[in-house]
């Protein structure tokens, strides 16, 4: 299966990467104060994150999201209509892919976050109606590593996540990534730029120790400039202390 779909992957991959790069700038700028919109019909953007990304059945997962240019937001399954940005706890009993749909004057956008519930199988894996692209597989399989405040050493959960990520990178040797370090808002701008880089490097070095080639991973840092979540509390800060994978080429 892998060989027969490689070409398709490569094609898709370029498109997806372009879109990801073009779209990547916009969506997280949601943290900056509202600027007067240049035109009233901007395309909505939305991001959705789940933390932790795996739990025991009935365990609590925090979903957090942010959006731009959207007036109606809806998270399925089970959450319903929500504010343009925020977070909410959910207690999935089986592996679930939460999808947020953001609708505004300029159209709509969706984002998904997968929560693996231990001992259950992913419904998405059971009924694939069409062959998923590399981007989709990447989104489903490659998860970010999270960190403690002011720390860049890997916690056990980060090691576990990266070990799974390494499996994916072994299965898809053509995939290259940029690994972006992020920090919460409490440290200084300047220090956080360095700390984010240390987080990205720590994750990269762990992947290298698992046999992933160093030249497939470019590291960079956003410091605290592109938070995933903009509330001023620990659940949000934890969302922002991470090494985040982005498909590159």
């Amino acid at each position: 299966m892998h060989h027969s779909t490689f070409r398709k992957f490569t094609l898709l991959f370029g498109l997806v990467a372009l879109v990801a790069i073009a779209g990547g700038c916009k969506k997280k700028v949601a943290a900056t104060p509202p600027a007067p919109p240049p035109t009233p019909t901007l395309q909505p953007t939305v991001t959705l994150n789940a933390s932790p990304t795996s739990v025991n059945p009935g365990g609590t997962v925090t979903l957090s999201w942010s959006s731009t240019n959207a007036t109606d937001l809806d998270i399925e399954p089970g959450v319903g209509k929500v504010a343009p940005q925020g977070s909410t706890p959910v207690n999935p009993t089986q592996t679930t892919t939460f999808t947020i749909t953001a609708t505004g004057a300029g159209g709509s956008a969706t984002a998904s976050a997968n929560v693996a519930v231990n001992g259950s199988s992913a419904p998405t894996a059971e009924a694939p109606t069409e062959q998923p692209g590399v981007n989709e597989l990447f989104e489903q399989n490659v998860k970010d590593a999270y960190f403690e405040l002011d720390k860049s050493d890997l916690r056990d959960d980060a090691r576990a996540v990266l070990t799974k990520d390494a499996e994916f990178f072994r299965s898809y040797p053509q995939v290259k990534v940029s690994l972006e370090g992020h920090c919460d808002e409490r440290g200084s701008t300047e220090y956080n730029l360095g700390l984010g880089q240390r987080r990205a490097e720590a994750a990269k070095n762990y992947l290298i120790s698992l046999g992933i080639s160093a030249d497939r991973i470019e590291t960079t840092s956003w410091g605290k400039e592109r938070p995933f979540c903009t509330e001023h509390d620990e659940s949000c800060w934890q969302q922002n202390r991470r090494a985040h994978f982005v498909l590159a080429h």
């Binding site: 990467a17 790069i21 940029s178 730029l193 470019e218 960079t220 840092s221 956003w222 410091g223 400039e225 590159a248 080429h249």
Partner: peptide, 13 residues
């Protein structure tokens, strides 16, 4: 100053 500039698909400070 510190600027974020894209180069070969990777944006870095």
């Amino acid at each position: 100053f510190t600027c974020f500039a894209p180069y070969r698909g990777v944006t870095s400070a």
